[in-house]
Amino acid sequence: MKIAIGITAENRQAVATELTKILADETVLYTKTKNAHWNCEGADFYDKHKFFEIQFGQLDDVIDQVAERIRSIGHYAPATLQSYLSLTHLSEKITEDNSSKAFIKELLDDHQSIIIILRGHIMLFTADYQDAGTADFVTGLMETHEKMAWFLRSHLNN
């Protein structure tokens, strides 16, 4: 059935292409947060184990929302690990240090990187692709990552 939502097919394709990259980043970050949850060691293990559990739960919701946004504009969401690794800008690097501080620093860097990318997409989606709905959606994602980054940052002594 024809999609008639006020966005051209070309613009919907361009938006979907960018959203698939965001979906890949979110999925890789989710996996890295699971890694921290499972493999964190130290005297603060239990607290950080629970903290990382909350964070990967939030990311699970984000992943679902991004995939559903892709579907709502008429495209299919990638759903293989291979596709995520080819689309993400994040590193799958695993630290040798399983301390909570090492995991938090790495996850914080990834969140901040995603925030910068999302911020850049807001105007792109509105101005270039006439898709205010996706721009608003991405603004919400950015705010979620800003809060998650704040929580991570709060665990570090600077």
Rank of each mutant, 00 (worst) to 15 (best):
Y30K: 07
L19W: 00
Q82N: 09
I122F: 00
F51M: 14
E146I: 06
A36Y: 08
L90C: 07
K93C: 15
L29T: 08
D60G: 12
N158K: 10
N11S: 05
I5A: 07
E106V: 05
Q13K: 10
R69Y: 02
T144I: 13
Y84L: 02
Q112M: 11
I70M: 02
Q130A: 06
Q55W: 12
L85M: 07
L107E: 04
E53V: 12
D47S: 15
A16C: 03
V62Q: 15
L87R: 03
K50W: 10
V15K: 01
K34F: 01
M148V: 13
L90S: 07
F103Q: 06
T17L: 05
A14M: 04
D47V: 13
Q130H: 09
P78H: 00
N157R: 09
I94R: 09
F103P: 08
L23S: 04
F137K: 12
A132G: 07
N39C: 05
Y129T: 00
G133Y: 00
P78Y: 03
A4W: 15
Y129W: 03
A16M: 01
M142I: 09
Q82L: 10
G140V: 12
I54N: 13
A77W: 03
T88S: 07
Y84P: 04
L59H: 15
M142S: 15
I117G: 11
A4R: 14
S91L: 08
Y76S: 05
L152P: 09
V138N: 03
F125N: 01
L156Y: 06
I94Y: 08
M142N: 11
Y84D: 01
E68F: 08
L59G: 15
T126Q: 11
T80C: 04
H49M: 15
S100W: 02
T134L: 01
Q55E: 14
T20Y: 00
M148I: 13
F125E: 01
D97Y: 06
F56S: 03
W150M: 05
Y129D: 00
E106I: 05
K105W: 02
E18K: 07
H121W: 07
A16K: 00
S154M: 05
D110T: 05
F125Y: 02
E26W: 12
H89P: 11
Q55L: 12
L141S: 07
F137L: 07
T27W: 01
F51A: 11
E41M: 12
A43Q: 11
E41A: 10
L19Y: 00
F56H: 08
L108W: 03
T126G: 06
T139E: 12
S83W: 05
L29S: 06
T17F: 01
R69K: 08
G133I: 06
D60S: 12
G6C: 02
N35D: 14
F56L: 15
D60R: 10
E10G: 07
H37F: 04
L124E: 04
